[in-house]
Amino acid sequence: MKVSLVTNILQVNERIAGQNKRLFDEKGVLVINIMSAPGAGKTTLIEQTIRVLKNEYRIAVIEGDIQSTYDADKIAATGVPVIQINTGGACHLDGNMISQTFDKLDFDAMDLLIIENVGNLVCPAEFNMGEDFKVMLLSVPEGDDKPLKYPLMFHESSALLINKIDLLPYVDCSTEKIRNESLKINPDLAIFEISAKRGDGLNGWLDWLRLKLKEKQR
């Protein structure tokens, strides 16, 4: 006998993500999910973002990695609360992993929660966690062919940070091509060209984030 089902395969994760989102909304906390390939500069971007915004907003961070606490240690040095999730092999974070950290987080003392996903350009885009926005980094040494190779991530993200622009003289990468092709996949994508390490272009990103924080707290 045939049974017609028509069910979203990731329905369990979607349900948990929905529960997380209701909590974040109730507490007025803006949650962003930062995604990229390994080594694109997520942790450096988060450190730089905290350095500027911690005088204006109360920030906490969840660090997702397969193994190790390197990234959480770096974030802890900035003085904001940080929780490390070790996925032990899983290539992405999901709604359930995030909800399991809630007893260690004080949402009443928080304006912004930054989640650093596991470095990977495919799977993280599929698993919602209840975040307000997905933000992705693409560093120029990775090459300008990435939007067309990994379209889902560009499609799901609200902002794209093209990182390591200080290396542009040394690599074959056209930021113009990245812009054109990612806007083709996602016409609403906000794009910033930055060097998280040197600080170039960070103001545009920080202003975008401030605007989203204001909108959330309204």
Partner: peptide
């Protein structure tokens, strides 16, 4: 050149036997 994606992201069980 501004195009919205309307399908291609499906991940569904349609039916089983």
């Amino acid at each position: 050149n501004q195009i919205d994606i309307i399908s291609g992201k499906e991940l569904e069980i349609a039916e089983f036997e």
